[in-house]
């Protein structure tokens, strides 16, 4: 027997459509995009100090929630939020088949890279490795990246400050999101490889697109128009 609310709760009947936005880095860049898409949320949505988590917009059919970037994917995958914005890094890490990523929003530009201390970088031949210890926030991406090269990644999962790991002996290599590279430089690290370029995507829950195609399509179209406006 599953908990009873699984039968009672029907997001479709629970009011406005929810758009999940990621806290932090991307949120600031979302503001201009939302404005061009004609979405005006309660002003404190971008205020990280605000205790609210759910914000109404001027459109009674749309609410915004603000959650951690990794959680955007989870909310959308389960259909709790039919729409969301998150970085391609999050999609690569979780790889939920229930998420569609129909639109590149061109914001939050950065890359997922491999970095290591400047003094050890390129001192040996990585093709001879059979195992490597990696500190990262992206265990799945790191494992997949090294497995494709025939190397086992022994992953140390951290939630932040990966750049500290090499100097403190936690791992020689880190897999990390790089925007300008200044954090790496400040910690004596160099980028040795780019795993993938990253931009933010508009993401959509599969079941929502299938059951309410008109509504979801109209939101995608609004974001498309907003992107053309920006170009």
């Amino acid at each position: 027997m599953t908990a009873p609310y699984t039968t009672a709760f029907r997001p479709e009947e629970a009011g406005p459509v929810v758009l999940a936005l990621p806290k932090g880095r991307i949120l600031a860049e979302c503001g201009a995009l939302l404005a061009r898409a004609g979405i005006h949320a309660a002003p404190d949505y971008a205020d990280e100090e605000s205790r609210r988590l759910r914000f109404p917009t001027d459109d009674p059919e749309l609410d915004i929630i603000r959650v951690r970037p990794f959680d955007v994917a989870t909310f959308v995958a389960f259909g709790a939020a039919p729409l969301g914005i998150c970085g391609a890094d999050v999609l690569m890490e979780f790889d939920y088949p229930e998420i569609y990523a129909p639109l590149d929003l061109g914001i939050g530009i950065c890359r997922i890279s491999v970095a290591e201390p400047a003094e050890t970088a390129r001192t040996d031949d990585p093709t001879r490795w059979s195992r490597v210890r990696v500190a990262t926030k992206y265990p799945a991406i790191a494992r997949r990246h090294y497995a494709a090269r025939g190397v086992q990644a022994e992953v140390v999962t951290l939630n932040g400050a990966m750049e500290l790991a090499p100097s403190l002996g936690l791992a020689r290599i880190i897999v990390v999101l790089v925007q300008t590279g200044s954090t790496l430089r400040a910690n004596g690290l160099v980028e040795t490889e780019i795993i993938a370029p990253v931009t933010s995507r508009l993401i959509v829950n599969r079941s929502a697109l299938k059951t309410r195609p008109e509504m979801i399509r109209s939101w995608i179209a609004r974001f498309q128009a907003a992107l053309r406006l920006a170009a």
Binding site: E12, A77, S207, T211, R212
Partner: peptide, 11 residues
């Protein structure tokens, strides 16, 4: 064919 119901993420 795949059958969906609104608000349900499972087929």
């Amino acid at each position: 064919v795949t059958i969906y119901a609104p608000g349900r993420y499972k087929e």
